[in-house]
Nucleic acid binder design. Structure first.
Lengths: 219, 219
DNA sequence: ACACGCATATCGTTGAACAATAGCTATCAG
DNA sequence: CTGATAGCTATTGTTCAACGATATGCGTGT
């Protein structure tokens, strides 16, 4: 990756830092983010931090409660359902109508291999990351920067939700094989079949996540 | 509509004001937005205005050039292409897989009627607005708040692009009939046919806009 | 146990200040 | 006359301090 750590504005860097804390688990869903405290930690002023908050709030990673502060978003069941609805529409179309030989195919391959390696090593959160990269590559087949961005946001939200669940092996293990299967169909030129397999994948994954989710968080 | 003009934060209201100025033509693409001047106009401080800028920049309505200021975005050909790509994917799936009797159907009807009325009155920009509402209702068929928001952003961008073009009659007239046709197919239960007609619609519209666009703005 | 009212810390917003820099302008060499 | 260079200036990027507004917790009383 590039290193935009000093070229970007301070608010942009703060937003990136917060994003990193979110995926690393340094900030957990529901947690309140004090402007002064977090500003001091990140080394930015309150106003600058507020700009970062704006950005992250519009990405649904943070939630703003007026006069009470900003909180790390707690994805609810409705969010999960909505996210999977978007995924089925976007990923399905992207994979089903992709032109053969698209450069994103390479990304899909490396992601699948990386997932297999991590699975062999037993590192299930790395498997989860690789799986997400696989699906991000699928969306990239559509060649749309706007869909890419939408999907990046959705992935971050989903990571937040996964963070609420334990047992990452149960969450990610079944899908490395399914991803391989989808990739095989796509490579074989059967885009429609690949899309159908992907749809089944997503239905299964949504059901699993929803079940684990409602088990953990009532309502 | 509701009246959230005093409940929302000042930055939110400022962002809304700027959005209104963008669609009303009070701000034109390429124009530079001075922080002090615009802040005085909207009655907010520089810091608050900057928060609004963050939000609108993340929606691609404004562009930030470091140390040079924020500018009203100038949608390029690549943006138009990208937007129509998203529209075909999202609208097509939403319409093609919609469950019958969805409440958004009513929105589609009122939008088509409103477009017809405005067309009879010769108010072509109102026709454009009604047409956009029609397509927004189509996206609402998917029942996804995330897709709704994506589409709202895209619509705003598209309005920006349309603002660069003159001759709104040429841009919007052909589509009131096409929308009626699509709606007829959908009402008749032929979702697949409606989706196909819609896709043809979008291909035609994209071609028209791109042609007018490259005629007006070289490169 | 519950409702009510107060206290306080935090948010929301402003204004001023200063460093950094992009873009203009005037100068000057060729 | 053209082009490059150096300096000026207005604007942005960022911080800090201040103050009103309000959500939340605590204590009181019933």
């Amino acid at each position: 990756m590039a290193e935009p750590e000093d070229s970007a504005s301070r608010a942009d860097r703060a937003a990136g830092d917060i994003r990193s804390l979110l995926i690393s688990g340094g900030l957990v869903p529901g947690q309140r983010l004090s402007e002064t405290a977090l500003g001091e930690t990140l080394g930015v002023s309150r106003n600058t931090l507020r700009e970062a908050f704006r950005e992250l709030t519009s990405e649904r990673l943070l939630t703003r409660r007026p006069h009470a502060g900003v909180f790390v978003a707690v994805p609810g069941l409705s969010s999960i359902i909505d996210i999977y609805r978007v995924r089925r529409i976007v990923e399905g179309q992207a994979l089903g109508t992709a032109s053969p030989g698209h450069p994103a195919g390479a990304r899909m391959h490396t992601a699948v291999e990386s997932a297999a390696d991590s699975a062999a090593a037993g590192d299930w959160v790395a498997v989860g990351t690789a799986n997400m990269e696989f699906h991000s590559a699928i969306v990239a087949l559509a060649d749309s920067v706007r869909l890419d961005r939408l999907y990046a946001n959705i992935s971050a939200e989903l990571r937040l939700a996964f963070g609420l669940l334990d047992d990452p092996e149960y969450l990610h293990r079944p899908y490395v094989e399914r991803n391989t299967h989808v990739l095989g169909l796509y490579d074989g030129g059967d885009s429609a079949g690949a899309a159908a397999a992907l749809d089944a994948y997503l239905v299964h994954s949504e059901r699993t996540v929803l079940a684990a989710y409602s088990r953990r968080i009532p309502r």
